[in-house]
Design a protein around this nucleic acid. Structure first.
Lengths: 359, 359
DNA sequence: GTGAAATATGGGTACGTACCCGATAATCCA
DNA sequence: TGGATTATCGGGTACGTACCCATATTTCAC
């Protein structure tokens, strides 16, 4: 609306060329480290650039180099099995994609099957062949992820981890929960609900429950136990690992457990499978046992609303993914510094604030 | 890195001009609604634009029109009195400003004194005189804010409310808490901590506690009471308004209250003044009374950590302000749709997750 | 010292849009 | 009918950067 002013430019490549008394093309060569510049000229131009504290104009750059940036996203399928958990990250990615589309960034998503490492590898290969400029991935399968990101490094493709981290890899950034801390918080929430002589049952439901170092669920369990230790909470902690995720199997195991340990007053489930436990208790009219779990998937929300589940701990998966894309954008296009680790706030969701965490 | 491709453009003003068989300048006139185009040509060009579903190239536009955008922010001073609460929004604004600086957006902040409506007006006038393209404000003083935003509307300057809303004004967007809902959640948190025969004390500490429609604190109180009603919680609710914010006055009033009502087991403070109450209880070694309050200011965080305060309810003020600026950016520069209302998630902060809400 | 090859440098155009300015066509008034 | 005014339109340049192509300079083998 306001009239545009057109004062003579004070900075920019033109001014550098003028001050260094060279052609624009030469300045360009220096800036992009292209060959064909004598040492003498190189030094001269570099000095001027230093003096001017030159920052390239992103707009001009984007217009001139009609280069399109391509980001790849590698996340699990949006499947019923995981309560459509990955819908939210997909939404966040969509949102970010729209926002930066006008800057010439395209975002392509690749989905793998959570039960099939092979599908992860297949899609990772597609990405490597696709000549992408940046990658956002959920490193679900550790070894396969390491192989993939190593390949990215070889090709100088920056990658961002989301949802879970692989600390030793040289990722541009990690965006996701601090699992141990979220478990520790879980410990506190448990203590709010626990009656003096109650026992607590920790339940891990997952096909693969391997070693403690890498397993997400066990990190959370650790957190809970630490909270109890440090706060000298004496209530007994029972624990059960269920590697068959079938609802009926879960139901049976839970009922068995409750039968043999009648003093269990609270069940803490380390992931979104908490809905299976909730379903079991609701179905069997067990309402003296409190439930705390993870992740705000649709089914979980409903159990929260009808009071079967008391707390869900979650991390706004939509925002997590949104930030992941924006991190690549900031790094690659805007040349802004990005944090190496961004731990998402650990959100406590109850019946009464769940509406605001929808996505 | 990848080679830029230069295929012949398929869209853009040039293509419109070609298809409509007119000059570029004419297309430009149509797009910007400038005069000097015959009705016939106007229709013709408009039709082509429709057909092509033309979307202007933001990059080209920003480069050609060297217009700088200027956003103004009108928020309270970062003062000791409010526990430096406004530091976080200021940080969020700073973050957003850096991000969009390269798109030619400048952000200027104006700070008013929370106890002085006049300083609000003075700064608002400065903004009106400063020819800004968009405004983000915390409408602390209702009437003065209405006058200011009306003036903005007259000048066609979009404005965004943050932190509190004035629903009847035609703001571009509101970003902030749903106060009633946050009180309702407060009710639930109270119920977690309350023992059967406890009384609850609701405390409003603020210089001005006026009518219920507009007062932030009373909206929260309403929320708490609603939760008790709907969930048939019978514990008695006591209530006290303290209009003198001096710590000693607060201390005296609280102690009086506790003395005359010994069954008070929990104090719910409707804003960040909860720290005054916490200080009082700590100082007087009263540790059988639980405290729930609002806002994650530094002092509050400390009381959370040492267990004097159990819960704080907050809304990530940094992100709130960040979103405020980005909303203006999306609307004015990127021409994206922005939500009319964005209610921030209502966060529950305890000792154990407070670290992740630092800002 | 001469040629060619290798190196170094500059000129110029393009990206998509905005906007100035000059040219032409239509209209008006006397 | 002619001159002047106004409405309508097109040409051309600019924004800041990238990159192609041509030219100038140096290097080096013979």
């Amino acid at each position: 609306m306001a009239k545009a002013k057109r004062p003579k430019p004070q900075n920019g490549v033109k001014e550098i060329a003028r001050r260094a008394n060279v052609a624009l093309a030469t300045v360009d060569r220096v800036i992009h480290g292209r060959p064909g510049v004598s040492k003498k000229t190189l030094e001269k131009v570099k000095k001027v650039i230093e003096e001017m504290n030159y920052r390239p104009n992103i707009i001009g750059r984007r217009l001139a180099s009609m280069k399109e940036y391509h980001f790849a996203v590698l996340i699990p399928e949006i499947a019923e099995e995981s309560g459509f958990f990955w819908q939210a990250p997909a939404d966040g990615i969509q949102l970010a994609a729209e926002e930066i589309k006008s800057m010439g960034v395209n975002v392509s998503s690749f989905f793998f099957n959570q039960n099939d490492p092979h599908s992860f590898v297949t899609n990772a290969d597609k990405i490597l062949k696709g000549k992408f400029d940046g990658v956002l991935l959920a490193p679900f399968f550790i070894e396969e992820s390491i192989a993939f990101t190593n390949a990215c490094e070889k090709r100088n493709i920056p990658y961002v981890f989301m949802n879970s981290d692989i600390p030793d890899q040289k990722s541009l950034s990690y965006i996701g929960p601090d699992l141990y801390a979220s478990g520790y918080l879980g410990g506190q929430l448990i203590s709010f609900l626990l009656k003096p002589d109650d026992h607590v049952l920790i339940v891990n439901i997952s096909r693969e429950i391997k070693n403690i170092r890498q397993n997400r669920l066990l990190r959370k369990e650790e957190g809970v136990r630490s909270y109890f230790m440090r706060n000298k909470i004496k209530n007994e902690i029972l624990k059960i690992d269920i590697t068959n995720v079938d609802e009926k199997v879960v139901e049976k195991k839970i009922l068995d457990m409750l039968a043999t340990h009648p003093r269990i007053g609270l069940i803490f489930v380390t992931n979104s499978r908490v809905v299976s436990v909730a379903k079991c208790l609701e179905k069997n009219f067990i309402n003296h046992v409190r439930i705390i779990g993870y992740d705000l998937i649709q089914a979980g929300m409903e159990y929260l609303k009808n009071g079967v589940i008391d707390f869900l701990i979650c991390q706004k998966p939509q925002e997590q993914a949104y930030r992941g894309i924006m991190t690549l954008y900031h790094h690659l296009i805007l040349n802004l510094k990005v944090p190496e680790i961004y731990h998402m706030p650990i959100d406590i969701v109850t019946k009464e604030n769940s509406a605001y965490y929808k996505n």
